[in-house]
Nucleic acid binder design. Structure first.
Lengths: 119, 119
DNA sequence: ACCTCATATGAATATATGCTCATGCGTTAT
DNA sequence: ATAACGCATGAGCATATATTCATATGAGGT
């Protein structure tokens, strides 16, 4: 009767406890959804864009000026944020105005700031 | 008098508005701090580890069993989480028990779940 | 029609990241 | 002491990601 446990015996915690953790585990869709949105927030440029947009609707040109980065770099990042529906846009002539499309973003940012300040 | 504006005129929004956004901008330390912590949450494996730890203190071995991944992969991710002080550990003989070291983590996860469910 | 401006996007490149494999290290058991 | 166990870690590799460069698109002005 070779038990199919060729690694550790997983008896650190009580087995029923382990099973409970397994049963409560997130489903794959939730895991991917969570990591996806946090990954979007996990870049300095996107943080700066989103934080700027918490204060005002802005066009690409404004963001180029505020972040002091190339228009291409910013447009690429806006595309990422658009795909995740974190920002929405509105066209006005040649210009495109971006704004936040997700109330949760502000909460994440403020809570994140509270976190690093409380450090 | 060539104005040093060889790109767009940044007149989309009122200039004082732009300046206000600039003045309110996060300092570099905050930007990097925010993106760092969100980047840590931006990976499926780390999400699964952290979510498991919200339910119980667990040893590496337990996590190997729960996540069904190699011990090496999990140890590497735990190292990342440790470096960011998101988890703490406690040694007991040969085993090492990990637990959350940051109250904010649970808030991020639950708020993130609310976000993707509300989708 | 032509040109310019504001923005988007594909390709290329450099860097970062996650996992595997092999191995090291400390603790306990024999 | 030696071996086994639980865990950590460095190297290597494959993939992902962020920026730049060049170019496309589309709206307005002339």
């Amino acid at each position: 009767m070779t038990k199919d446990v060729d690694m550790c015996e997983e008896l650190c915690t009580h087995e029923e406890n382990i099973n409970q953790v397994k049963n409560n585990a997130l489903v794959e869709k939730e895991i991917l959804g969570l990591s996806e949105i946090f990954k979007a927030l996990g870049d300095p440029t996107r943080i700066r864009i989103l934080y700027a947009l918490t204060q005002s609707e802005l066009c690409v040109c404004d963001l180029v000026d505020i972040l002091a980065m190339t228009q291409s770099a910013i447009s690429h990042q806006l595309r990422t944020l658009r795909n995740l529906r974190l920002v929405k846009y509105r066209k006005e002539g040649k210009k495109v105005f971006y704004s936040l499309d997700d109330e949760h973003i502000i909460n994440f940012l403020t809570q994140g700031l509270a976190h690093i300040r409380h450090n």
